[in-house]
């Protein structure tokens, strides 16, 4: 490149993007918009809305909205996070890290429950419900008594047990200072022996991956002959099913999670999935001959807790008949 071109290129670089007043792109964020999205809560309580909740209310809300995954006592179901217990285990061989034993700030719990929970229905809780749930989680960890009330006033005074359990990244001093320099190339150790083998443990998934798809297509055409399902209704139902996915699987290879797998549910006898522990009320209704036909499913999914008092299912229900029809059409459309 000639000297002239170099200079020209340099000038062009300097002249192009840098503007004193910026680019004038974007538009002002309105106060209502900022209020809608700026929800984070800091350890000193900055960002908390006004409100309060007590342990007993929290127990009810928790049972309704959280227990399906986290257990009635916040002890965790299956592989879902345990929120309670583990105090004093952090130095053990297998520490139990929960809100009570590990989380350094209460704000983190409030913020997370408020912005990200319940799983599959985030940002649906009122501030008072969040205060109550957090109060109940503290109670489950034996950190407060059953008459405890959490509010924006009392919040900042609460200190979590593991608040001082953290230290800042010190790798440069404790690791980098040691693990450097010219490494050994010859005679680095006298002998090499196998001390552990992955194959002995045998927890690696097998490579049988792509088979599921081919199996699916061969069985797909064998659909019901009575009335062809409306594809739009099925598609709408599939979208709605996202609400259910946290607890239920459906289709080839579906497994029981915190809810039973739902393949072939429409028209099937209630309580008949192998290996699932049904609630007592469901077992009782199954014994009376409950069949999950269109009518029964529709009634159950409309108001689960009215249809079946004491059901383990924490879903609050679908209001619209259209939604109910859609989800049942979807459930019926998935081949066994």
């Amino acid at each position: 490149m000639s000297k002239f071109l170099k200079i020209a290129a340099g000038l062009a670089f300097l002249a192009s993007p840098v503007m004193a007043d910026g680019f004038g792109l974007g538009r002002p964020a309105l106060p209502e918009e900022i209020a809608a999205w700026d929800l984070d809560v800091s350890p000193d309580g900055t960002g908390l809305p006004q409100g309060q909740g007590d342990v007993l209310t929290g127990e009810e809300v928790f049972a309704d909205k959280c227990a399906a995954c986290h257990g009635d006592f916040a002890e965790g179901v299956d592989n879902w996070p345990k929120l309670a217990g583990g105090a004093g285990t952090l130095a053990d061989q297998d520490p139990l890290k929960t809100v009570g034993s590990y989380w350094p700030y209460l704000s983190t719990t409030w913020d997370y429950v408020n912005r990200s929970m319940p799983f599959g229905n985030a940002q649906s809780l009122t501030p008072d419900e969040v205060y109550a749930i957090v109060a109940y989680i503290l109670y489950s960890n034996d950190l407060v008594d059953d008459d405890f009330i959490l509010s924006d006033d009392t919040f900042a005074a609460f200190e979590m047990p593991n608040q001082d359990g953290f230290f800042l990244d010190d790798r440069l001093e404790t690791e980098h200072a040691i693990w450097r320099g010219a490494p050994c190339m010859e005679d680095c150790k006298p002998q090499v022996q196998v001390t552990m083998r992955a194959r002995v443990l045998d927890v690696t998934p097998t490579q049988a991956g792509a088979d599921a798809d081919t199996a699916d297509t061969s069985e797909a055409p064998a659909a019901a002959d009575t009335s062809a399902p409306d594809p739009a209704l099925v598609a709408a139902g599939e979208k709605l099913f996202k609400k259910c996915k946290a607890c239920h699987q459906i289709g080839a290879g579906a497994k029981n999670r915190s809810g039973p797998q739902l393949t072939g549910i429409v028209g099937r006898a209630a309580g008949s999935v192998d290996g699932f522990k049904y609630s007592k009320p469901l077992q009782a209704m199954a014994a009376e001959g409950l069949i999950w036909d269109q009518t029964a499913l529709s009634a159950f999914l409309h108001k689960p807790k009215s249809f079946m008092k004491g059901t383990k299912m924490s879903f609050s229900g679908l209001k619209d008949q259209e939604d109910l029809d859609a989800i049942i059409a979807y459930l019926a459309s998935v081949p066994n």
């Binding site: 952090l90 130095a91 520490p95 890290k97 983190t108 359990g165 953290f166 790798r171």
Partner: peptide, 27 residues
């Protein structure tokens, strides 16, 4: 100040044998 969100306190922190935990281990 940092928010100390779930993902930077309860997760992505490194617990040592004595039960203390190293945080802000970004690199």
């Amino acid at each position: 100040a940092p928010v100390e969100s779930r993902e930077e306190t309860s997760k992505y922190t490194d617990t040592f044998a004595d039960g203390s935990s190293r945080k802000w281990t970004w690199e």
